[in-house]
Each structure stands twice: as structure tokens, then as C-alpha cells.
Amino acid sequence: MTPMPATAAVRVRRAELSDLDDLVALELASFASDRLSRAQYRRHLDSDSALVLVASANHRRFLGTAVVFFRKGSKVARLYSIATHAEARGKGVGSALLQAAESHARRRGCKELRLEVRTDNAAAISIYERFGYHRIAELPSYYEDGADGWRYAKPLRTHREKA
């Protein structure tokens, strides 16, 4: 893949079945454990309780993905996963995906977005805190490989509530 120019516009859209190969490849490249399988992605693409987003630039170039879960009757959405291609990191892809996840959760009536992050993932923690997420819980041995995690949350205010 050629390097992404810093000025490339990042577009975020709902994933489609045609994105499945790219989703699985990025999952394998991004995570050593706790991965979503091809079958899980396929199920999430057709689910009302899941939203799979993809970020792209320059005519559908696949740069990253985010997976958001919604529970019926709950006002809390969960950002399950967010990943970007290595060469796209630091270029606004993660931020664009996070903003889109928040926007979709707001539109579905959610009042809060929660996520879990490995305690050793300083880059992700920095983005989450910059976007107003607050640590609400410690998660000892949370990940498949025994790594510790933290749970973060952010209230999702509507435009009227911000004023």
C-alpha cells in the first residue's frame, strides 16, 4: 500500500459485505488475540445490534474499521473494536472512526459510549482521553492473553444539551 498523504480526506461509511476480506485482513494485522472471526464480522454486517464502520480515502482505499454494539433497551453503546492500518496511523483515521461511532450511537438514542482498552495501549488511551472519555473501571486480566484493561465511558450529549 502506498503511504497515505496527510491531507487525504477520510470518509467513514457503514461496512458492506464486499468489505469482508479487508475487515478480516486488518483484524489479523492489528490484533494478536481477542480477534473477530470472518463469521463474526459477517454476522455483525447483517445485525441490528451491531454497526461496522469503515474509513477510506482516495476512492475506497481501506484505512480502518470500528465495531459498535447496541443492546436492546439500553442507552449505552459499546465501542467493541477500532483499528487502523499502520501507515494510516496519526492521520486522523482513528479520530474519524471514533466521531462516527459517537454520532451513530447518538442517533440511536444512546446517552453513553463505553469501550475497553489495554492498559499498555498508550496511543489509543491518548485519543480516547482527548475526545473526553473517562476511565471508570480497572479490568484485571481482561484480555485473552492475560493483559489488564481499563473501561472508559463518555456521555453523549445532543446538540441541544451542549448549548
Score class of each variant (00 low, 15 high):
2 T>S: 13
2 T>K: 13
3 P>N: 10
5 P>D: 11
8 A>P: 01
8 A>K: 15
11 R>L: 14
12 V>P: 01
13 R>M: 06
15 A>Y: 11
16 E>L: 13
18 S>R: 14
20 L>G: 00
21 D>H: 12
21 D>Y: 08
22 D>F: 07
24 V>Y: 11
27 E>R: 05
27 E>F: 07
29 A>T: 05
36 L>C: 00
37 S>I: 08
37 S>G: 00
39 A>D: 03
44 H>A: 10
45 L>C: 05
45 L>A: 05
47 S>I: 00
49 S>W: 10
50 A>P: 00
51 L>E: 08
54 V>R: 12
54 V>Y: 13
57 A>D: 12
59 H>I: 00
61 R>K: 11
62 F>S: 02
62 F>W: 07
63 L>C: 15
64 G>E: 12
64 G>Q: 12
65 T>D: 10
68 V>A: 03
69 F>V: 01
71 R>N: 06
71 R>D: 07
74 S>E: 10
76 V>R: 12
78 R>H: 12
79 L>D: 13
79 L>Y: 05
82 I>C: 01
82 I>V: 15
84 T>H: 09
85 H>E: 12
87 E>N: 15
90 G>Q: 05
91 K>C: 08
91 K>E: 09
91 K>I: 08
92 G>K: 12
94 G>Q: 09
99 Q>G: 00
100 A>T: 03
100 A>L: 05
103 S>A: 14
103 S>H: 05
103 S>L: 09
106 R>K: 10
106 R>M: 01
109 G>F: 14
111 K>V: 08
112 E>D: 11
112 E>Q: 15
113 L>H: 02
114 R>V: 10
115 L>H: 03
117 V>I: 11
117 V>D: 04
118 R>Y: 06
118 R>M: 04
119 T>Q: 13
119 T>M: 11
119 T>R: 15
131 F>S: 00
131 F>D: 06
131 F>Y: 13
131 F>P: 02
132 G>K: 11
132 G>I: 11
133 Y>C: 01
133 Y>R: 00
137 A>Y: 11
137 A>G: 09
137 A>M: 07
137 A>N: 06
139 L>N: 04
140 P>M: 02
140 P>A: 04
143 Y>W: 14
144 E>Y: 13
145 D>S: 13
145 D>N: 15
147 A>T: 12
147 A>E: 15
154 K>P: 10
156 L>I: 07
158 T>W: 05
159 H>Y: 07
162 K>H: 07
163 A>H: 15
